[in-house]
């Protein structure tokens, strides 16, 4: 065989996307394997020995859960120390993220195994148990939001904005709309004053955007369509521009609403995870001390 076809058969280097896919697949398989191992171990424990936090098995679950909890928490630190991470080659951000996600989920399972799937007694233990569940649940909720919201915003709206600029851009729209309305005929000015001006006062959050990213935009523009019939062609142009500004405001509101959710879930996750870490330290201290 000549060297030419052999060279053609040589494997091409994987693209960034396929490498990411490979990493994701490895982590998900690893997670499935680790979860299966945990459940099988727990089953064996249940069959052959006492299931309790104080047994050797229970202490092993608890130790593993504590280590995973700390590892998952290190992700947040790693994000804040990017220079250190690159200097000491602490691994890629993607791997840290997967460790945070899968490690956190496995932490919850091991924590439940440690408590023998029972609600523990004692204030610290009870809060640790409850907030661990809350932290992991809020993390999974945030993961779901991060998967869904960017995709929705990218596909259903006519513009993309940074969350921090929404207020400024709404002001921009308001200025443009005011200027436009000032040069328009009385019916258009009346429509502006009644319908558009209140809307352009400030960015608004609406629940409807979680269900329908358009926010019922077409229904709200019917009034513009009705008025258009009675206007001259020049006024029609102005009305059309006003409608575009109004639609842009509704799109900004959609961004404002969904991006608020995208940032807001962290309030349910980060402070509680800090409390969980402290409770874990108190729990370990109490266990070793007493």
């Amino acid at each position: 065989m000549s060297s030419q076809p052999r060279a053609r058969l040589r494997k091409r280097p994987p693209s960034v996307r396929s490498a990411a896919r490979l990493t994701a697949r490895r982590w998900s398989w690893g997670f499935v394997m680790a979860t299966s191992l945990c459940l099988a171990t727990y089953g064996a424990n249940w069959l052959f020995a006492e299931v309790s936090p104080g047994s050797v098995w229970g202490l092993a679950y608890g130790t593993a859960a504590a280590l995973l909890m700390v590892a998952a928490a290190l992700y947040g630190m790693r994000r804040r120390a990017l220079s250190l991470a690159s200097k000491y080659r602490l691994g890629s951000a993607r791997n840290w993220l997967y460790l945070h996600l899968y490690g956190g989920a496995l932490f919850l399972l091991l924590m439940l195994m440690h408590s023998a799937f029972r609600i523990p007694s004692g204030a610290v233990n009870w809060w640790l148990w409850l907030l661990s569940g809350w932290t992991v649940a809020s993390g999974l909720f945030g993961l779901a939001l991060q998967q869904w919201i960017p995709r929705t915003l990218g596909s259903g709206l006519g513009l993309e904005v940074v969350y921090e600029r929404v207020g400024e851009l709404v002001g921009e729209l308001r200025d443009k709309a005011e200027a436009l309305a000032a040069t328009s005929v009385e019916p258009v000015q009346a429509l502006y004053a009644r319908r558009v001006a209140p809307e352009l006062a400030a960015p608004k959050r609406r629940w409807i955007y979680f269900l329908d990213i358009t926010g019922g935009k077409q229904g709200q523009l019917k009034e513009f369509d009705y008025l258009r019939r009675f206007l001259s062609s020049e006024e029609k142009e102005k009305l059309g521009e006003l409608a575009r500004l109004y639609k842009a405001k509704l799109d900004l509101d959609a961004h404002y609403t969904l991006q608020t959710a995208l940032r807001g879930w962290l309030w349910a996750h980060v402070p509680t995870s800090m409390v969980v870490l402290i409770l874990l330290i108190l729990h370990l201290g109490a266990v070793f001390y007493f």
Partner: peptide, 14 residues
């Protein structure tokens, strides 16, 4: 926007 407020809130609860 800084996430320091998140850490501050967590720190306050802790």
């Amino acid at each position: 926007s800084s996430r320091n407020r998140l850490l501050l809130a967590g720190g306050a609860v802790v």
